[in-house]
């Protein structure tokens, strides 16, 4: 589904992952810049969620719809949950958490695409 948009999300997420890893290595907590970039990515993921549901509603193909929505919801949920979890962590561990999340997001997006394509059940 929505190929180029999903690809853009994956690329942005991996870039932010690299950024977070650099902060871990530099022993620094995430600053305003990375948090703002994370918010932009979250915005893309909310659009991904809404767009995915709209596309699903307009399709009469047979695929695992519950799983599809589940993966879309997971995509949109991980950044807010991670942000809450590191809200008072002032060390580089906060950047470490973001690095993990930005690495997992592309996997979730690929799973969304796989379920949409019907290649897994």
């Amino acid at each position: 589904m929505t190929g180029p948009f999903a690809t853009a999300i994956i690329v942005v997420s991996l870039l932010l992952c690299c950024w977070a890893v650099v902060l871990v290595i530099a022993n620094r907590a995430p600053g305003r810049a990375l948090l703002s970039a994370s918010a932009v990515l979250e915005l893309l993921l909310v659009v991904f969620l809404v767009g995915g549901i709209v596309q699903m509603a307009g399709s009469d193909r047979d695929f695992a719809r519950a799983e599809f929505v589940g993966y879309l919801l997971a995509c949109a949920a991980v950044i807010p949950v991670a942000a809450w979890w590191v809200r008072d962590e002032k060390s580089r561990a906060a950047a470490g958490v973001l690095a993990v999340v930005f690495l997992v997001l592309p996997v979730l997006v690929i799973r969304v695409q796989q379920v949409w394509a019907g290649s897994v059940g």
Binding site: V81, W85, E89, A93, A94, G96, V97
Partner: peptide, 20 residues
């Protein structure tokens, strides 16, 4: 705290994945 933040994050992801 500290590294534990990252560890809990990874555990949380597996909790979610395994549960779903």
């Amino acid at each position: 705290r500290g590294f534990g933040r990252v560890l809990v994050t990874v555990y949380g992801i597996f909790a979610l994945a395994a549960t779903a």
